[in-house]
Design a protein around this nucleic acid. Sequence first.
DNA 1: GACACTCGTGCAATCGATTGCATTGAACTC
DNA 2: GAGTTCAATGCAATCGATTGCACGAGTGTC
Lengths: 354, 354
Amino acid sequence: MRQRRGALSRMETTKKIPTIQDVARHAKVSAATVSRVLSSPDRVSEPTRERVHVAVRETGYTMNQAARTLRLQRAKTILTAMPGIGNPFYSTILDAVVTEATSRGYGVLVTGRLGDDPSKWLSDYFLSNRADGLLLFDGFLDTRRLHAIAGLGGALPLVAAYDELPDPQINSVITDNLQAAERAVAHLYELGHRRIGHIGGPSRNTFPNERLVGYRKALFEHRLPAREEWVVSGDYSMESGKAAAAHFAALPERPTAVFAGNDEMAIGLIAALRRHGIECPRDISVMGFDDISVSQNYAPALTTMRQPREQIGRIATRTLVDILEGTRNRPEPVRVVLKSELVVRDSTAPPPEA
Amino acid sequence: MRQRRGALSRMETTKKIPTIQDVARHAKVSAATVSRVLSSPDRVSEPTRERVHVAVRETGYTMNQAARTLRLQRAKTILTAMPGIGNPFYSTILDAVVTEATSRGYGVLVTGRLGDDPSKWLSDYFLSNRADGLLLFDGFLDTRRLHAIAGLGGALPLVAAYDELPDPQINSVITDNLQAAERAVAHLYELGHRRIGHIGGPSRNTFPNERLVGYRKALFEHRLPAREEWVVSGDYSMESGKAAAAHFAALPERPTAVFAGNDEMAIGLIAALRRHGIECPRDISVMGFDDISVSQNYAPALTTMRQPREQIGRIATRTLVDILEGTRNRPEPVRVVLKSELVVRDSTAPPPEA
DNA sequence: GACACTCGTGCAATCGATTGCATTGAACTC
DNA sequence: GAGTTCAATGCAATCGATTGCACGAGTGTC
């Protein structure tokens, strides 16, 4: 208990980490005054303030966050929960989250795959005072669970991002998934495609997936045939894109274009179709969704709906921090909708017959 | 100060978060006993233990980490520092880190881009008691700085991973970069290539980059020409791969194969060369390094040296946690070297003339 | 039956920062 | 010049969990 970092410190010059008391002694004031200089400087006289600042510099003092957290019940830390950090879509968002949070003085904790029981990590992170708020990406939790989370411990500050959430009570930063999906299908339609397939995301997602709904809606509006065998459900991985390829290749009447729920499935699809002798865009057009960084350098360069990922991360973080800091006091939940952008590249072309 | 989560809790039933005192009252014992039941159960009698467990369940108690951290000077949290979380290479590692750390009861904090001054975030995270140890990926800090970090605050528990670090005093989990680079060049040599180029990583990295050294060594061993204009230095981004393409395309005598320092640069290179009418592998062979997830689905599927990324993350984390827990008490620094694996795909082929 | 010993539990100090309240001294008012 | 006000600072309680020490009850020994 004498040592600071017990496990490691052996004979080494275990420098004691300076506390606010040390600074106080140095500046010949009380700890209370030091604290005030640091948090509300105008309540302290000019000369004292100066002495304290010097003492802080000389001792190399840094506030002990644990003590502060304990006293204030605020950890200055946010938790992010996302399905798969390894996924380039999320990792870009995370990058933006970290940048924004750090600049606001907040730390960022990341969870692993959460499993189905939110109460476990809820207590791990929130009731235990490790994090002040939650950034929830992708709606892998149903509304009821989400509410249970949001309500527990007295209204957990929470911003949900990316997928449309059915519950308007929850703060959210999302993109116009439904419209974007419609726009994607419209693009294929405009190129002359009439038989358009789709690879959807995992069905455990919130509700009937927005992108799937947009796809269906667009088919309907353009009076295009909606065949069940043209819709495959995947899990946003390249593997599932490949699996879809096998399915499409085996079809007697194949769609001339496929709108994939994300770029990775699109890439997996194109790669695997090639092995079946089906070339994109010569034989089939493929659209992605997201515009991850490889997409523009893929062969063929992928036509896709760009999602403003940095923006999602940045705005969601800013919103959450604003809530935590009390800057945003309005009772109505925040609801930001960002626009996707159609990026036309080489993976889509007019259908073979046309 | 009365409210728990000040900013948000309005009229809602702000449930008080139960403390150890509440549990103690519930079980009609002292807080000390509750603490003991939770941390060293065998020091408490069976019936009391049972009563306490019941009380814990009934109150829904979760230990307040801030209080525990303050008392024990251990945050049960590790910090990861990596250049660019958005990079798929690192995000996969991070995924493994999070999984491993979580299973050991540790939280994972991530930093943003660190900038050149380690002392700032050092104090932000360590002196302030937010994190117990550091997982350092990629050697963007020179030895002197690293030592300054490792020494400060009395030996900061630190595991460096991935790039070979020149300092044997520091715990490290790395891959056999040098040998892997040699192996990569050897593969190209075996295919018949004699004019082999390279795109290196950023020069700010530790020392003469290991991969570059391996490349040079292999050229020497196979008595191949080492022309300076065949070596380009990039920054591991696709963009720099493209830039390299412009350079190579403009060369009067072009290499017949290029060994890129990572897959992303290889992909950027292939994509941009194509625009110059140079096809891979028909006109030029390209090797990557890392085997990120798109590589196998790229067109052409990328030949590369696979880095065991999950392993790197997992082992580095395990090592750090072992150190923190005092499991690993031996004074010698840990030094794990993992093996890369050659994965031959379609982006390498015999040279045009052969 | 007195003594030593063990086991189970409680008391109270501690970790470091914050903040309501009390205190001091100076300035200002009539 | 006595009273009022206010700015500057210190005192001490507090946040919640941990742990050395003390104490009391029970067991064993000669």
